[in-house]
């Protein structure tokens, strides 16, 4: 099991636009990725490719979240997703 902690970089939190970018990226990966607020049990983690689950987390700017994935390519996949989460997409 690969695991990464990321801090939400988007200044408005994980709302529609950043969530859409992230969900699309997660859906394209060869592995299934889950996301949870830091400190929440792993079995309550959500599907990272679901925009509605992402929005439902209510993660704001600076919130820590944990990404998890298993299988081949998991490490590289998570690294890629952490970069997306920590980018402020509203600054573009």
């Amino acid at each position: 099991m690969a695991e990464r902690t990321a801090i939400i970089g988007s200044r408005v939190g994980l709302h529609a636009r950043p969530a859409a970018i992230f969900a699309e990226a997660a859906a394209e990966l060869p592995v299934e990725v889950t996301i949870a607020l830091e400190g929440e049990p792993a079995d309550e983690a959500m599907d990272a490719s679901s925009i509605l689950s992402l929005m439902g987390l209510g993660a704001e700017h600076g919130t820590s979240v944990v990404l998890r994935a298993e299988g081949e390519g998991a490490e590289a996949a998570l690294d890629q997703l952490v970069t997306i989460l920590e980018t402020d997409h509203d600054a573009e």
Partner: peptide
């Protein structure tokens, strides 16, 4: 951006 996000909602896995 809004339409893209809405499209993702329509086929949302969860």
């Amino acid at each position: 951006a809004v339409l893209k996000a809405t499209a993702l909602m329509a086929s949302d896995r969860s």
